[in-house]
Design a protein around this nucleic acid. Structure first.
Lengths: 224, 224
DNA sequence: AGGTGAACCTACTGACGAGTAGGTAGCTTG
DNA sequence: CAAGCTACCTACTCGTCAGTAGGTTCACCT
């Protein structure tokens, strides 16, 4: 009935500030992702972090500042994961494929991060949505650059860049949404979800209903 | 929306219960969409509705019940709009196109409804997300049925239904997401957004970068 | 007319949560 | 070993908001 290490009784162990800040941020992402910004209380975050409430305010400022800091940190981690995952010296479809795999891989390993980034940041207006818009902008730029290099868009000769950006926005949106849907269907493996989106956006329904499927260059057939 | 005598002074005019309930629901959707579930207060909803707080409780029960009722009502309105919009006796691509147009048309005319449905319902856990899952399920069934009728999926002969459902889920997700993105870019007309998604999901990047574009049967060229 | 009940109100309670004041323990350097 | 800084705490204030108790007007029906 007692003697558990995680019990939060009495004074917490003294730790250097940087370490505590990390712990607090981790706890905050966890609580924000489960409860949402408004329903999450600083009391609960401090409890999960294993310290008292005044420490939150001493280290991370107000609730709003804490939330914004969480969003920024997670956004950077996500973009880093994608940038690391893309195989830049490959043909366009393989680049897209590797980017999608990196993206869904990150979400698989960091569901709380994605939850707080996508769902929570969106619903809180003001400066929070800004962070998300910025993240999305960076992702769109990445995809748009890929598309620009992969074709000339002969039918829209003067608007190649704008055209690419529109398509990139749609793709990024589809990725966000599919990841979101995935939160509610956690049984599916990341590769399957990524392959599904790859097929949809690269081949299109028109090809798929005709039996034409995209699959990665040197692996087994993709099974969406 | 409704024009309201903005001055809320003294006693409200006596109205039959059904009419008041409609007014309250309209006000609730408006406030929930702007502020989110938690930040929205029953006081503000009652003020927007033009009545006092006890009336809310008398007619619609608790805050949670009111929110759930809003979600259900708006979900039904949306599905009705789509079902009415689809031209069932047309070929698959035209059916998809008409469905997309109906969907984005609804969102254009009912931004608050979509906001409360998609963003707010998602972020509040529990029974609210259920409603949204249910809505999405109905939409997916609709699209999946369309796909099943449009091809045999020769490469996945035994799993035609599951395959179609997966693709339908991805498409519905893409639609949700694009509508969401659209909330932040209200300058684009509905037809353009719908055409963009149509091209993406029917043709695929693979075709689009090669210059192949889908366009509706008897109109001018689609301009995504 | 006058009774009856539905529609409406003001004004409260009680809980909860953001943020703070003021104080205690432990490391670290003279 | 003291001085001093930093990590840490308990215990409050104060505002906000869900939900309610109890009273007031008005429309309709006999």
């Amino acid at each position: 009935m007692h003697a558990e290490p995680p019990v939060r009784s009495g004074r917490a162990k003294r730790l250097p500030r940087a370490v505590r800040e990390r712990q607090i941020m981790d706890a905050a992402v966890d609580v924000f992702s489960r409860l949402g910004f408004h329903a999450a209380s600083m009391d609960e975050i401090s409890e999960v972090a294993g310290i008292s409430k005044p420490m939150l305010y001493a280290y991370l400022g107000s609730k709003e500042e804490l939330f914004a800091t969480c969003i920024r940190r997670e956004a950077n981690r996500l973009m880093e994961a994608i940038a690391d995952g893309v195989e830049a010296d490959q043909p366009p479809d393989v680049q897209l494929w590797s980017g999608l795999r990196a993206f869904f891989g990150f979400v698989a390993g960091n569901r709380a991060s994605w939850q707080v980034l996508h769902r929570q940041a969106l619903t809180q207006g003001g400066p929070f949505a800004r962070e998300l818009v910025d993240l999305r902008g960076r992702a769109i730029d990445l995809v748009a650059a890929l598309l620009v290099h992969s074709a000339e868009f002969p039918n829209v000769p003067r608007a190649g860049d704008r055209e690419a950006e529109s398509l990139a926005a749609a793709l990024v949106g589809a990725g966000e949404s599919l990841a979101d849907w995935w939160l509610d269907h956690p049984d599916e493996p990341a590769g399957v979800v990524a392959a599904r989106l790859m097929n949809l956006v690269w081949m299109g329904f028109g090809d798929l209903v005709a039996g034409n499927v995209w699959h990665p260059p040197s692996r087994r057939t993709a099974a969406p």
